[in-house]
Design a protein around this nucleic acid. Sequence first.
DNA 1: CCGTTATTACGAATAATTCACAATAAGCCC
DNA 2: GGGCTTATTGTGAATTATTCGTAATAACGG
Lengths: 138, 138
Amino acid sequence: MTSEPAESIRTAGLRVTAQRLAVLGALDGMPHADTEALHRAVRRTLPGITLQSVYVVLGALTEAGLIRRIEPAGSPALYERRIGDNHHHAICSRCGAVQDVDCVVGHAPCLHPSDAAGFAVQTAEVTFWGLCPACQNA
Amino acid sequence: MTSEPAESIRTAGLRVTAQRLAVLGALDGMPHADTEALHRAVRRTLPGITLQSVYVVLGALTEAGLIRRIEPAGSPALYERRIGDNHHHAICSRCGAVQDVDCVVGHAPCLHPSDAAGFAVQTAEVTFWGLCPACQNA
DNA sequence: CCGTTATTACGAATAATTCACAATAAGCCC
DNA sequence: GGGCTTATTGTGAATTATTCGTAATAACGG
């Protein structure tokens, strides 16, 4: 039901290239991957692609709103394909594992600060830090 | 009313050094400064201090819980002296200005995700992105 | 199929941060 | 107060993540 990747790229006003399709495709199996991991994955189908091109592709797709970039403290930037819903992340402070977390039901207010000192708030980003199930046993 | 900086450093199990005192002192006038800005500030009273030492000092103070490090996307790490209260930040997506934002009154629940997929959540970090008052006029 | 223009490749550069190791100084004991 | 032990700082280089300039390539509209 997801619209064709090629079409969504075109609709965003971008040219459809093998590199962009490959990055989007790789991202499907890697919900929160960094640039290097994506480069490794994409290389399997596109052996010649350079790391720098993956950076450029990710930048373009992010700017076009086709993917989302998150930049957790102490980690390189991660990319995800799930967009449009306002979801947040739980990150393991020990191993770095990332889990999507739906916005707390009925608490959308947490996205509207009582006092933002005159800021015109556009988005709210919530990150939960803790231990993932695996790291709790250690 | 703030306890003596020297004492708080000692209480944290750290040795009291001129460098640590200077960094803490500089941080008083710069609520959300990055390492380089702090280095410049500290140099005024401690001309010989190196940038690397500022990094080390900030790391030690952060680990000891005397200051707090925030790492906004697209910015170097910032440090602040206000700790212990669970406050958040509004950041201008245009100029990078940072404002403290108190936790939404009565909505502490925003710190407890409905489903964290088994994560043992220890802290919640909220960042509001938008335009600061100055940048709204542009 | 051709030309225009976006996109990618290539190579180098930069920014932020960390590391290894030697020099220094804090704090404790006497 | 002097000396000892060990934490801390200074020095210089290395690393990681990312960006930039420019030439080569490929998408897509005519």
